[in-house]
Measured scan of single mutants.
Amino acid sequence: MEVRTIKVFTTVDNINLHTQVVDMSMTYGQQFGPTYLDGADVTKIKPHNSHEGKTFYVLPNDDTLRVEAFEYYHTTDPSFLGRYMSALNHTKKWKYPQVNGLTSIKWADNNCYLATALLTLQQIELKFNPPALQDAYYRARAGEAANFCALILAYCNKTVGELGDVRETMSYLFQHANLDSCKRVLNVVCKTCGQQQTTLKGVEAVMYMGTLSYEQFKKGVQIPCTCGKQATKYLVQQESPFVMMSAPPAQYELKHGTFTCASEYTGNYQCGHYKHITSKETLYCIDGALLTKSSEYKGPITDVFYKENSYTTTIK
C-alpha cells in the first residue's frame, strides 16, 4: 500500500517557510505537534488534498525554529505562539472599519479597549522592536488589523473576551517599542525636605499616572512627601515624541487643539466601556464603527496623549 502524501510549508514567522512532505494517514499533531492554519487549530486533523502548498504555523520545537521565533517575536515564552494563534482565530472574524481616516474595530468580545489602543497607536510616533509587531502594525494602518490585535493580546497575556485596560495595554506595548531616546527629568520640591531631581528613561519617561493635564504637570502637581507634608512635583525636561497622561476616570474637559487623542471610560472596574476622542479640525468621538463630532467635550476621561518633541522648564 502506497503512502499518500502532500507537500506543505511549516513556519513560526510566515517569513521562513520549511518544506514538509506530510503523510495523509496521520494527523498534523502526530507529525508536527500543535499546528495552526489561519489561526485555526488543526492539530487533530489529517492532511487533505486542499492543504497542498498551504502554510501551517507550528510551535518552535527545534533550534532553527526557536531562533526564527525569537528573532521575529522577541520572546522565548513557549506558550506565546499558541496564544497568538488562538487569538487570531477570533480577531480574523472582527470587522476593521476605516473611521475618520483611522483603522478602528467594530465592537465584539469586549474589544473596546483594543480599538482605543489601536486608534491611539496610529496617532503617536512609535516604532516597535519585534519585527512581528512592526509588520502587523503597518498592515493594521492599511486596514488589516487582525494579526496586530492578536499579537497585542498575546504580548499582554490576554484572551479574547476578557476586559482590558488601555493604560495597561499601552504599557505592555511600550515595553516592546523603541523608547531608548526618551528621557524625563522631574523635580520634587518640599518646604521641609528641599528639592530632589529624578531622571527617568524609556517607558517611565512617557507615562504618568495622577493627572490628565500635561500643562498642569509642567506647572506642578501636589504629591505627598515622605515627611508627610505636601510637596510639588513638576516637569523639568521632556525628550520624547509623545507623552501619555493618565488618571482614574473623572469628568474632564478636553479643549480642541490642546491634545492629540484621549480615552474615555464609562462604567466601573468590573464592567465598563471605552471610547476614543481625537482632536482634528474639530473633536471626534470614535466608538467602534461609530463616529460623532463636537466642538467641545466633557466626560469621564482616563488617558490623554500629547505630541511632544523637546521641553525644558522655565521655572527657576
Rank of each mutant, 00 (worst) to 15 (best):
Y73A: 05
G143E: 04
K255E: 08
Q270I: 10
Q230R: 10
C225L: 01
T198F: 15
A146L: 02
R4V: 12
T260R: 05
E144F: 06
Q123K: 03
M244C: 06
P300S: 11
S240E: 05
T103W: 12
F305I: 14
M170D: 06
L88W: 09
Y113C: 13
T103C: 07
F9P: 08
Q196M: 11
A40P: 06
F259W: 04
G202F: 03
L102N: 09
Q237I: 08
D63I: 11
Y36C: 05
V236G: 04
K219D: 08
T91C: 10
K158I: 06
E239V: 13
H176Q: 12
L126N: 07
A250D: 13
V160Y: 02
I105Q: 02
I301A: 00
G228I: 05
E168G: 03
V160N: 05
A69T: 09
N309M: 08
C271G: 12
K298D: 07
C190S: 06
H90A: 12
S246R: 08
C149L: 08
E239N: 07
Q123A: 07
K92H: 11
S50I: 14
C190W: 01
L291I: 15
G257F: 00
A117N: 04
S279E: 02
L179P: 09
M24H: 13
V8P: 08
E144G: 07
T103I: 13
F70Y: 10
G299Y: 00
Q123W: 08
G228E: 01
A146G: 00
I45Y: 13
T116M: 04
I152F: 03
S79H: 11
M24N: 15
V58C: 14
L200A: 08
Q237W: 07
N129S: 08
C285W: 08
Q123F: 04
P34C: 12
T169D: 00
S86V: 10
F217I: 13
Q20S: 13
A115M: 07
G161Y: 02
C193R: 00
D109I: 04
E253Y: 07
R139M: 14
Y57K: 05
S213P: 10
R4W: 11
T312K: 13
K298G: 04
A250M: 15
L119N: 03
Y297L: 10
D62L: 10
G33R: 09
F32R: 08
L121Q: 07
N111E: 05
K316A: 15
G288Y: 00
L200T: 09
T211Q: 08
K158W: 01
D77A: 05
G33S: 07
E71A: 12
A231R: 03
C112L: 03
Q134N: 12
D62S: 13
Y284L: 12
L254Y: 00
P60A: 13
D23P: 09
T211L: 13
R167D: 01
L173Y: 04
N268S: 15
